[in-house]
Amino acid sequence: MSTNEHIHKQKLTDPPKTVKFKIQRREKEGADSHWETFEVAYRRNMNVISALMEIRKNPVTTDGKETTPPVWDMSCLEQVCGICTMVINGRVRQSCSALIDDLLVATGGNTVTLQPMTKFPNVRDLKVDRTRMFEHLKQVNAWIDLDGSYDLGPGPHISSEVAHERYVYSRCMTCGCCLEACPQYSENQYIGPQAIAQARLFNMHPVGKTEMDERLNGLMEENGIANCGNAQNCLQVCPMSIPLPRAIYETNRDITVNSLFGWLKR
């Protein structure tokens, strides 16, 4: 499974001299948003972040208006931290791995549109506050309680199949793509695929399993798993190729067997 199926590394045979960046800007949370367009000289192997850095050096719009440098988040620059996620040409993805050649080949033009994710509070320009994803992890107890005052010895063995499957879920970088693309997700309405897959990660662990009821209870709250509408956009946009619908359906089964019909064996 590759984590970069959405990156095609296509090359423009006849690149434009300049590339336009249409950026949705907002001064602060709650303020009205507006658009500003910038023009940057084309360079080989440019990506959205390097273009934004170029704009930051000289923040003048195509109308010649001097403006503030656009604000965005970035850290690892290799698509493992997830913080530079934004909506690029209408589709959510990490800006560090969004190559300009790819984007222009796909649209056939010379303009790239940048917007902040719409499902999170917009702090400023392209920067959003993703705190609620951490709240979701708390709601589903996405950890294993293991605290002893003495040595507990080696942990239980895990079969390589389970370890493999868990590894895939463990790659989640809490970037928010799945929530942004989910037509059912909005604050307080649905917890979204990210937290469900993390609950699954810990429910699959032999020790974590002992706290499965707690996690399933978290997932059966008002905003829980039953709000999933099976549109499965999460599967398409996840940059880590995590099989999010699978995590949801495994958990649906756990809930059916354990929570809905559990009384039949108690």
């Binding site: 707690e214 209870n217 008002e222 354990n258």
Partner: peptide
């Protein structure tokens, strides 16, 4: 742990 269903879930 006791199982809790929310209204929306049911």
């Amino acid at each position: 742990m006791a199982i809790k269903f929310s209204t929306t879930f049911l």
